[in-house]
Design a protein around this nucleic acid. Sequence first.
DNA 1: TTTATTTGTTACCACCTTAGATACAGATCA
DNA 2: TGATCTGTATCTAAGGTGGTAACAAATAAA
Lengths: 140, 140
Amino acid sequence: MALSTRFTVALHVLTLLAAYPGQALASAYIAGSVNTNAAFVRRLMGSLRRAGLVHSQPGTGGGWQLARPAEEITLRSVRHALGEGPVFAMHSQRPNPKCTVGRHIQGALTAVYGEAEKAMEMQLEQHTVASLLRSVRGRR
Amino acid sequence: MALSTRFTVALHVLTLLAAYPGQALASAYIAGSVNTNAAFVRRLMGSLRRAGLVHSQPGTGGGWQLARPAEEITLRSVRHALGEGPVFAMHSQRPNPKCTVGRHIQGALTAVYGEAEKAMEMQLEQHTVASLLRSVRGRR
DNA sequence: TTTATTTGTTACCACCTTAGATACAGATCA
DNA sequence: TGATCTGTATCTAAGGTGGTAACAAATAAA
C-alpha cells in the first residue's frame, strides 16, 4: 500500500525552516521546495503547530517558523506530533476465538510489534532536525 | 492509510501450521481461523511458498505445511518473503532540485530511515514462528 | 481605512491499495 | 470417475492519500 509521505514532508519542511532561522516562510514558498501544494503544507503544519514544534503567523510577511531550537526537535517527536499510527496492522477482521491460535495471536503479536517499533523509535530519537540539516549541508 | 494486514495474517497462518506439524491444512480451514476468505489465504501463502517457507499440496487431503522447522523461520524472513516494502515513504513528487534542502533531503532521510528500519528488523530477527507459538500457548 | 497577504479550514476529486467475493482450470487422491 | 484442493484471474466496495479550489479571518502595510 502506498505509505503516507507526511513524515517525510514534515521533516523536509522542518529542515527548511531550520535553514532559515528567524525568517517566516510562507506555505506557498515551502510548497515550492517540497513540490506540492500550499493547502497540503498548511494541513500538515497544523499538526506540528498543535504539538508546539512550529509557530505560524498570518498576514503580510507571515508564515512558519520553528517554535523550538532545531537541536531539541527529535525525529521521534515529529512522528508523534503527526499522530502517525503503528507500523504493523492487525487483522482487519477479528480472528476466530474458537481457535487457540486465533484467540491469542494478537496478544502475542502486540508484544513483538511493540518491541520492534520501540527499537525503531529509539533510532529516530537519536536524530534531530539540526542533525538532518547538517547532513543535508554535508552533501552540498 | 490502512496498513497491510498481510504480515500479521502470514504470521497467524504460520503459527497455525506450526501448531499442527505433519498435517496439511486446507486454505478454507485456515481462512476459518483467520476469519477471511480462502482466496486471500492462497494468494498470501503463494509468497511464502515461493520463498521456501511452506509447502502446498493440491487434491484430496492436501493443503499447507511448513517446509522448514518453525525454529528456523524468523519473523524477519517472513517479512522479506512477503516482499514488504519500506516503513517510510519518500515524497510522492520529487522535491525541488533548485533548493539545497530539496536537493539533498532524500539522501539524508534514506540514511536515517535505513538505520531505523534495520533496528526494527533486528528485533524481528529475534523471534521465530516457534517462539510465537510458545507465546500463544502461554496465554491459554 | 483600505488593500494585499497569509493562515486555517472545508469540500471535493482522482487515484491507488486492500481485501472480500466469485469463478474456473489444473493437479491430486480415493 | 468424482471429489478435493491449489493456483490464478477478475471484479468490486471501502478507505486512505494527496491535489485542487474556495473562502472567512487575521495581520501588516500603504
